[in-house]
Every structure is written in C-alpha cells, then in structure tokens.
Design a protein around this nucleic acid. Structure first.
Length: 578
RNA sequence: GCGCCCGUAGCUCAGCUGGAUUAGAGUACCAGACUACGAAUCUGGGAGUCGGGGGUUCGAAUCCCUCCGGGCGCGCCA
C-alpha cells in the first residue's frame, strides 16, 4: 500500500518534469512516504515537497499543491490534503481498507512476505561460541537475535542459510580435553586433582561419565599418579599438564579423546540452542580451514596485493592501509599462524560460496575485530560491503540488586538452559528481541520470573488465544458463519484502526528486514494486540447482525493470521488457549 | 590515553533515511469497567529541561563538535 502511494507520487512528479515545472535533477531516489504519528493527518503522508522545495526553488506549500493536483486518480485514495508546512496527506478509501481483510484471508501465511525488491542469498553466521561449555544467557541473546534475523530475512523474501563456526582447534580444546580426562580418572577413584585454571563446570563431569560409558577404561593410564602439573602461572600449569597427558596417552589416543570431547560439546551446544528453537543449517569447523590449502592461499592473496610484510620475525598484515587502527600479525615469530589468519580464510571461504551477503552476529567483545576483518576481506580482493557485522551487546544478569558474575572458565554462569526452564522459551525469545541488539540489556531474573504474567509476550499470545476462543464459542453456539458474506463496511473507529494496523504489517517486515532489526516486529505485534484488545472490549462480534458478524469474524480471522505470521518470525508460539 | 556502542517518564524501553508549536509505549501509582464472545483485557489520570552546552537549517531526540556519565575493546591469546 505504501509502495502504491509512492508510485502515485512518482507519477505526479514525472508529469511535472515532463511539463517542465520542475527539473528531474531535484527528484530523490526514494519518494518519502510515512505513517503520520497523529490521527487526523491521514493514513499516509509525504514530505516530498519540503524535501525538494529548496532545490526546485519553490515554496513548499505551492509545490505540494502542484504535486497534489497532478496525482493520477486511484481507487486506493479517498482524498488528499496539504497540511502544515507542506505535507501531502493521503486518506485511504473505505473500500481499500476493506480489501485488506480480503487480501490477508487470501494470502494467509504469505501476507507480508516477499516484500523485498531483490531477493538476496544470505549466509548468516551466529552464536559460534567456543565449544568449551554450555551456552549462557549472553550467548542466548545472540542466538535469539541471529535466529530471528534469519526468520525475518526469509519472510522478507531472501534466501538464508545459517551457520555455526566451531573453533575446534587450539589450546582451549586441549585444556577442555585434559579437564574431562581428569574427571574421567576421578570417577574411578583416582586422586589426581583438576587445576583451578582448568574447566570446572559440572558438564565436564557429565562428559567424563559418558566417556566411561562409551569407552570404559580405554583412556586410563597406569602412570597418572606421576603427573605433576607445575608452573609459576596458570598457563604454565596447564601447558605442563597438557604435555604430560599427551605423552601418556600417546598422540593418537589423545586426539581420539579430543574428538570425543569436541563431539560431546557440540552436542551440548546443539541441545542448548534447541531449547529456544534455534537450529543451524551448517556447522563449520575451524579445522576445515586449517587442514586445507585455503589458509595459506588467503595469506598468499594478501601478499600478492602487497599488504604483507615481515617485522621482528613475524608476518604482518598492513591493515592500517584499510582503515584499521594498526597492523595485525598473521604469523607469529614462532611460525604459528594466528587466530586472525584462520578467520580471514574462513571469511573468504564464506564470501566465495556464491552468496550475495555474509552476515556475522558477534558479541560486543569482538567489536574491535570488525575493522581488521573488513580490511582483510578487502585486501584479499573481495567487496567488504558484502560482509555485514552486527554486534550484540551482552546481557548482564541480575538477581534483584545483585549482579551475577559470569565466567565460562570458572564455571560461574547462568546457563541458557536454566533461564529457559525458569521463564519459558517464548518469554526468553521475546524478551531478548524486544531490545535493539546494540542496546545494553540488564536482565533481572527475579523480575522476569515474578512478572512473567505481565511479560509482553503473553499480551500478544492472549490476543491470539482470544480470537481462537471466539471461533470456539461460535461453534458451541452453533452459529453458522458465511465468510463470503462478510463485506459490510466497518465504521467503528476501533475497527478501522485495527484494519489500518493490519495493513502496516508488510511495511514493518520490509523496514525491519532492511535495517536488520527484528525488534520492530515485536513492537508491531504489541501494537496490533493493543488495537485488537481495544476492539474486542468495545465491540460484540458474535452478537452482531449476521452480515456484520461475518464481516467482523473475517476481520479477527485476519488479525489472527497476522499474529501467527509475526510470532512465527520471532520463533514464538501462537497458542489457541492459555 | 585512543576506538566503537549507549545515556529519552521512578523503572524497562520505542521513536522508521531530520519533520507537523501537546516527545510515545509497557511497568509502577491513582480512579473506573465482568449476571456479556477468556478481566493474562479495557477506559481515564498525573509523571520527562530527550545527560549538559554549542553548531548546521525553514525544522534536531534524530546530523556535527565538545564536555559529563556508563559499557566494551585496544596481545606475536583464541
């Protein structure tokens, strides 16, 4: 509907250009059309006259009048007016509003979808937390945002595949492996101690138990008592421990153990994600990059473009030439490649898989990496514009007035699982996406739990349940509905507001997909529910005259459909009763 | 110290590419509405110098500068 208004304006402007009233150079690419905030200012308004008045050398109101007079006739528009400094207000015709109900009921789950002009293929990577422990509430936010974004972009008409990048190599995996191993020995009464810098969580014990179940004594060692992890720092203690365990088990058995632990961890994470309904299409392992030619090829590409140099025995990427603060190390002086190097290779891999766009959802602690990543992508010959990086701020957890410290290594964190058990999947997801991702989030568990009945998600779900209830009542009272008869013009203000709200849905999907802001959907659903509840309290549906009753039933049927479509984007259920 | 994000009603937050001389929701507080399709709802009310100060212009919560306050990041870690 908004696009139709834009088209009408465009036609008028073109006509004025043809008549040499204005110069085509002053026309904007997109004709601004908005929903006025205040009632009485029409269903749509355009500030086009104000925007181009200066360049056109005319007074805004005069120009607005000119544009208005050249608008082609349309059944969509009932009337137009010039208001304020030079706005053109459009009032939608009664018939066009009634048609909205019909449109929704014809298009059903497709209403509001496929709204983008060009359908892009998108690769969306999110969560990608290190596989060293269960997901906590901070990861949950990224998971909820990423998954909702995926659903949103799909609804908008894009093709999306989602991916989890697993850092399955490096020291942290070794630490994890020995942590499990020690717990595994302890299960059989071994007195070996777990260094405090190792992973302490209960999940380590769970994995150790499963290891016993699956492999019994295969990873036992007779010489375990000889192990003495020593060092002057936590890091040295761990390194010494890893070295000794690796020696006792032998390279092959250690790697086998490592693979087991990794597989277990991935399963833990997959399960955690499942509790809020998040399922990734692909799981991409860092080792896929390091074990291929891609890693060296990526560095070679940077070299070819002359952005690599040697200094202090290390290999550097001249990222400062591409907007980064300083240059970054690709290969350390000890010959090992940095994490950054493999990350470059991974991102090049993603960009070369034939997608139009690669989107990353990163935690706030990674925002310092955006510049260097984009620099690398660009230096390797790819278009950095095709890489979008969205930062999600962490969720700080509070229990009342007490802040809950979170550290994965120390095993201190509130797990995502715990939170979902506490307040439920729907509330968890809705709560997360109710805020802009870049906004800091203070999440009070006590509050979320104690006020769970006042959570906005119930407000929206209740609207849906109420509508379903009306249809149940209809059957109980043996009321015969003729959906084809429901075409009586609705005149109540609450009804018209409701229809207008419904008609906004495609615009909201488009806008929120365009700006990657799923929270717009959540707020829209709340507004729609508000209008529905107001309507419900003001107007009787089943007790109306048959024709009017059928019309109102069609109306709430379309409201129900929009609620379903919107909630589906959020990954939240639409219960028929609560 | 430098960089990025944030600062809107007591609290939690919206405000779409700057727009309509009264800046919006929810929550909390106060007052009302069920012999009626589910009161997990609705109706009304008070509450804010949009962190402070400059600037850009017809017009600023929105853009620029500066200061204050908060978060995060600034490794040859991953």
């Amino acid at each position: 509907m908004k696009h139709k208004i834009q088209q009408l304006l465009k036609q008028s402007l073109d006509a004025l250009v043809t008549a040499k009233e204005i110069d085509s150079a002053v026309l904007p690419k997109i004709v601004p059309v908005e929903r006025p905030r205040r009632a009485g200012q029409g269903d749509y308004a355009s500030g086009i006259a104000l925007a181009i008045a200066r360049a056109a050398g005319r007074k805004p109101r005069d120009l607005a009048m000119l544009i208005k007079d050249n608008l082609p006739p349309s059944t969509l528009v009932d009337s137009t007016e010039i208001a304020g400094p030079g706005f053109i207000n459009f009032f939608i015709s009664e018939q066009a509003l009634m048609d909205v109900i019909t449109d929704v009921r014809e298009q059903r789950e497709n209403y509001g979808t496929g709204v983008v002009e060009t359908a892009d293929s998108v690769l969306l990577e999110f969560v990608s937390a290190n596989p060293t422990g269960p997901l906590h509430v901070g990861h949950g936010r990224g998971a909820a945002y990423g998954d909702t974004l995926a659903r949103l972009l799909r609804a908008a008409g894009h093709q999306v595949s989602t991916e989890y990048y697993v850092n399955d190599i490096g020291r942290q995996m070794d630490i994890l492996t020995v942590s499990v191993w020690i717990r595994y020995l302890q299960l059989e009464g071994d007195t070996i101690l777990l260094p405090k810098a190792a992973y302490q969580g209960d999940y380590i014990v769970d994995i150790a138990k499963h290891l016993r179940q699956c492999h019994d004594a295969r990873f036992d060692s007779h010489r375990a008592a000889e192990i003495e992890a020593k060092g002057s720092s936590d890091d040295e203690v761990l390194d010494s421990l890893i070295r000794q365990v690796r020696q006792q088990l032998g390279e092959e058995r250690f790697n086998e153990l490592r693979r087991f632990v990794l597989a277990e961890m991935v399963e833990v994470i997959r399960t955690d994600l499942g509790t809020i309904g998040v399922v990734h299409d692909e799981w991409f392992f860092e080792s896929q990059v390091t074990q291929s030619e891609e890693l060296e090829a990526a560095i070679a590409a940077l070299e070819q473009n002359g952005c690599v140099y040697e200094s202090d025995g290390a290999t550097w990427f001249r990222s400062s030439d591409y907007g980064d603060e300083k240059d970054r190390v690709l290969r350390r002086s000890n010959g090992e490649l940095t994490y950054f190097s493999t990350d470059i290779a991974y991102h090049l891999n993603k960009l070369r898989r034939g997608h139009d766009l690669a989107i990353n959802v990163w935690g706030a602690d990674h925002h310092g990496y955006i510049a260097r990543m984009k620099a690398a992508v660009q230096a390797a010959g790819e278009d950095a514009e095709r890489l979008h990086i969205h930062i999600v701020q962490f969720a700080a957890l509070w229990r009342g007035k007490q802040k809950i410290p979170m550290s994965t290594r120390a095993g201190e964190f509130v797990s995502l699982q715990e939170m979902v058990d506490d307040i439920g999947r729907d509330a968890t997801r809705f709560f997360y996406v109710l805020r802009k991702p870049e906004q800091h989030l203070d999440f009070d568990l006590e509050l979320a739990k104690s006020q769970s009945n006042e959570n906005p998600v119930y407000y929206v779900q209740y609207a849906h349940a109420r509508i379903c209830s009306v249809f149940r009542q209809m059957k109980e009272r043996s009321i015969v509905r003729n959906a084809n008869n429901g075409h009586v013009p609705l005149v109540e203000e609450v009804e018209l507001n409701l229809i207008r709200q419904i008609s906004r849905f495609p615009e909201v999907v488009e806008s929120s997909a365009k700006s990657f802001e799923p929270h717009q959907i959540a707020y829209y659903l709340r507004d729609l529910s508000t209008d529905f509840h107001a309507f419900y309290n003001r107007v009787r549906i089943l007790d109306s005259e048959p024709e009017l009753r059928d019309t109102r039933l069609n109306l709430i049927d379309s409201v129900r459909q929009i609620l379903v479509n919107g909630l589906d984007i959020l990954g939240v259920s639409a219960p028929e009763s609560m």
